[in-house]
Design a protein around this nucleic acid. Structure first.
Lengths: 210, 210
DNA sequence: TAGATTGTTAATCGATTAACAATC
DNA sequence: TAGATTGTTAATCGATTAACAATC
């Protein structure tokens, strides 16, 4: 199967879930696992796991299951977390600052190497080990460093402009926390916090009526 | 249409997107808008918007479009942001602290009324206007206040326990930032930041091969 | 060998889109 | 009236699941 056919988005997201689950199993000392067991942990169907994996190859042994350590390694390569990623953060507000110190990211090989903000009163201040730089220094910074991923954590009205700048600098992907749809050709992942609250509000409202 | 039939999840999420887009249009002083215009702003199909709205009623005028102000009000009621929501945050780490100060939430009527942490060394410290309380005080707090939504921003291994506690206290919904699937019957919205980075990494890796 | 579980196909389910009559 | 756009149905597309032969 292993071609570069289009992989459905839900599949991509689940790969990360499998990866996480496998790591937990590994920590528990489990050597072999059946799709059925992963499925029950994640609350999905075992056939879905097997189907998802089949996009990339055959990793299991019939009658036995999957070797946990081996499948972790395979998923690492497939997802791309077998390497380190250099990340910068644009916007040193609440969200931006939190991400700089967020241990989850470093653990997963996403290394934050720079923080930028347009507010000169923030420039020079430290967040963890990093010093906030003015956004105008980004261009220079990009010449000296390989930046692969940028996080957009700026106010809504600045997000599109920043995106265009990032695209020019050759950044490869964006994680967008601003509540706008970005117009760009590079891959974007949206993390829309207020939207999640709204979705939850809706669901709570419906709970009673069932 | 307006029954309490099941609304597909993607529809619910898009309602929030429509709401946001309509507010922008309102700020721009636009009175009437066609589904085609909303669609082009959001990068989706106009028939999808009309279909989504049709789950809840008829809000447009044929040949004319939708009255922006009116549709905003309707969506407010449908989504449930016509009222204020009381929110508490469990876990005063990076993410938890950032959310307390996050202006986006208050603006959307999600009012954070308490922050809790298990780490006694954090208790008593201030985040914005709120004082971090010890998690053991939660029970007491819940008696004196109506808490509707809880944010879980604790380490993975504490998340399930916290969830069960919250369920007992009668909390109505959870926004979960911990990287685990919570087993609970109350509605949960997942915000999985590291998963988004992984998904992005995968997409970047595929970009080249297309 | 008997039992278990994979990888894959085909069937099912659900969500998106096109099309168009209704109507402003 | 002529033009525009809705609300809704039916067609299409895509994703999930069941089923099972292959095989460890």
């Amino acid at each position: 199967m292993k071609e570069d056919q289009k992989i459905p988005n839900p599949v991509v997201r689940r790969l990360g879930l499998y990866y996480r689950c496998l790591n937990k199993l590994y920590d528990e000392g489990i050597e072999y696992v059946a799709s059925k067991d992963i499925a029950s942990r994640l609350g999905i169907k075992s056939s879905q796991i097997r189907k998802d994996l089949s996009y990339f190859g055959e990793f299991g042994k019939r009658g036995v299951g999957y070797n946990v350590e081996n499948l972790i390694k395979k998923l690492e390569t497939i997802i791309g977390v077998d390497k380190n990623w250099n990340v910068i953060i644009i916007g040193a507000g609440n969200i931006g600052s939190a991400l700089v110190n967020y241990p989850g990211l470093k653990k997963e090989k996403f290394n934050i190497i720079g923080v930028f903000d347009a507010d000169r009163s923030k420039v020079g201040k430290k967040i963890g080990k990093l010093t906030i730089q003015h956004i105008s220094q980004l261009h220079e910074f990009a010449k000296k460093n390989i930046i692969e991923i940028a996080v957009i954590a700026v106010p809504e009205n600045a997000a599109q402009m920043v995106t265009e700048e990032l695209e020019k600098l050759g950044i490869k992907g964006i994680v967008n926390f601003a509540p706008v749809k970005l117009r760009t050709n590079i891959p974007v992942e949206e993390v829309d916090i207020t939207l999640s609250f709204k979705t939850l509000a809706f669901k709570i409202g419906r709970e009673g009526s069932r």
